[in-house]
Design a protein around this nucleic acid. Structure first.
Length: 477
DNA sequence: GCATGATCATGC
DNA sequence: GCATGATCATGC
């Protein structure tokens, strides 16, 4: 015999009102048990999401294809925050349902497993603290969330990108870097978690739909500011319907209300029918092929020090029509923008550097959650300049790029080797450029006296991951 | 103060 | 000429 729920599970407002009571509290506040209760101690180690469903909302956690509050069309999601300075940012990506490669390709976006379940979310952001049991985590933000139309446009493109790979029999080659906001993240304890795919015999790594951490930061900011745009119920309804779109998404930008970045609205207005965000970006840059840095600066009336290392970022932002510091979609999609300069003869002098290797951290990392993997599986936006006869760099081309599956396997071997060396205390025999392993390890510091502590307490020169110039050359040609 | 994106310098 | 080591300007 179940006691009646303290809310109406078919009524969105009732659910939200009840959920809001969690704000600034922990789940334990609502449980009548002591901290040392054996059962609670055990539970405290479990998934907070499951406990919220079971103990707070009175649901048995399940793995149905339906949303948690199916009658109200709301999916419940809990997600951790971490403190960075004064503000809170997302600790990790938000993971949705596992992608059933055998089924997902049979539908269109609006009837997909992802959209049916996750069109409207009830988000519970809590403050993660590894010192505490999860029952004691404080909920910081509780809010309903619908995707703004500008973002939805990109999410639909993302979903199509993922499904296209399934249809091409390349589910095993899917990478988080393929997409901007909606990712297909690995799901499973190890690389051995694989599934069948419909158009190839190659087992594909199990993956789930997910929102990238950087996109969550945007959601968090919107919610925290109290400004977040909730799309009108009627507007959203057509997206939920199973019939074909009654009107073109791309024309709806004029209906947007406050709470949206102006830049995003402007970009959406600029979409031509059927164009993806990336095609739009490439088209915008296409207008400036052959221009030199100074041409571009003059044209946009930019006063940037030619020595400034961020000058390319400033220029690229202006080409995208963004006055501010960043391109919103690049931030939300966690796109890694890199500039390279080819010599007059087309050769590429420099390799591309990444973060310094954190000697104390890498030894505890696993490949799939390592910095190296996270970075190399990003979507890259590469801006290519080439020097002319006078050695003046001129914009040659731009491209979006994701590291191919087979190259990622090489990078993994490189990383394992690097990790093993550091574990062994050997800091002098890393993979070199001449080893031709796509990546190499090389110094990156203020000077040779700039050292970093290792796990064993010694100090070593700071070194970083680098992508080989020859490899980059092959990417862009 | 220091990581980052990027480029310079040297020695084989 | 290229691989490797070293370092710079900037922003957070």
């Amino acid at each position: 015999m179940q006691s009646p729920l303290p809310y109406d599970k078919g009524d969105k407002n009732s659910i939200l009102t009840y959920a809001k009571l969690l704000e600034n509290r922990s789940l334990r506040t609502f449980l009548s048990c002591s901290k040392d209760d054996a059962m609670v101690v055990k539970l405290g180690k479990g998934s907070l999401g499951n406990m919220v469903e079971e103990f707070y909302f009175g649901y048995r956690p399940n793995s149905d294809a339906q949303a948690v509050f199916a009658d109200a069309g709301i999916e419940l999601k809990t997600s951790p925050l971490k403190r960075v300075g004064k503000e809170f940012v997302s600790k990790e990506r938000l993971v949705f349902n596992i992608i059933n490669y055998m089924e997902e390709h049979k539908t269109m976006f609006r009837t997909s497993s992802f959209w049916k379940k996750n069109a409207e979310l009830l988000l519970l952001f809590y403050i993660h603290d590894k010192e505490q049991q999860s029952l004691d985590y404080e909920f910081k933000y509780v809010s309903l969330w619908r995707f703004p139309e500008t973002d939805l446009k990109i999410i639909i493109d993302d979903w199509n990108t993922i499904v296209r790979k399934i249809k091409e029999g390349r589910a095993h080659e899917i990478s988080e870097g393929d997409t901007l906001y909606l990712g297909a993240c690995t799901k499973g304890a190890t690389k051995a978690s694989v599934r069948q795919q419909p158009f190839s015999d190659i087992p594909a790594m199990q993956r789930a739909f997910s929102l990238k951490s950087k996109y969550l930061n945007y959601i968090i900011k919107q919610i925290a500011s109290g400004m977040h745009h909730v799309i009108d119920e009627g507007e959203y309804a057509y997206l939920l319907s199973e019939s074909p779109l009654p009107r073109d998404l791309y024309e709806s930008a004029n209906n947007l209300e406050l709470g949206h970045a102006v830049a995003a609205v402007e970009s959406l207005r600029a979409y031509k029918n059927g164009q993806t965000f990336e095609e739009l970006v490439c088209e915008r840059f296409g207008n400036y092929i052959g221009w030199s840095e100074s041409d571009l600066m003059k044209h946009f009336d930019l006063k940037v020090n030619l020595e400034a290392k961020n000058r390319y970022n400033v220029i690229c932002n202006r080409i995208m029509g963004v006055e501010g510091k960043y391109i919103e979609e690049f931030v939300k999609g966690d796109i890694e923008m890199k500039t390279i300069i080819l010599e007059y003869n087309g050769s590429l002098r420099e390799s591309m550097s990444f973060q310094q290797i954190k000697y104390k951290e890498i030894i505890y990392e696993e490949w799939l959650s390592s910095y190296c993997y996270e970075t190399l599986t990003k979507r890259f936006f590469i801006v290519v300049f080439q020097r002319d006869e006078q050695r003046v760099p001129r914009l040659l081309k731009v491209l979006f790029w994701t590291m191919p599956h087979e190259d990622l396997a090489v990078a993994e071997r490189f990383w394992e080797n690097t990790k093993a060396n550091i574990l062994n205390g050997d800091f002098n025999n890393f993979v070199k450029l001449s080893d031709n392993m796509i990546c190499h390890v090389r110094p990156k510091a203020r000077n040779a006296q700039d050292l970093m502590e290792t796990a064993s307490g010694t100090f070593e020169k700071k070194k970083a991951y680098w992508l080989n110039n020859a490899y980059i050359k092959s990417i862009i040609s």
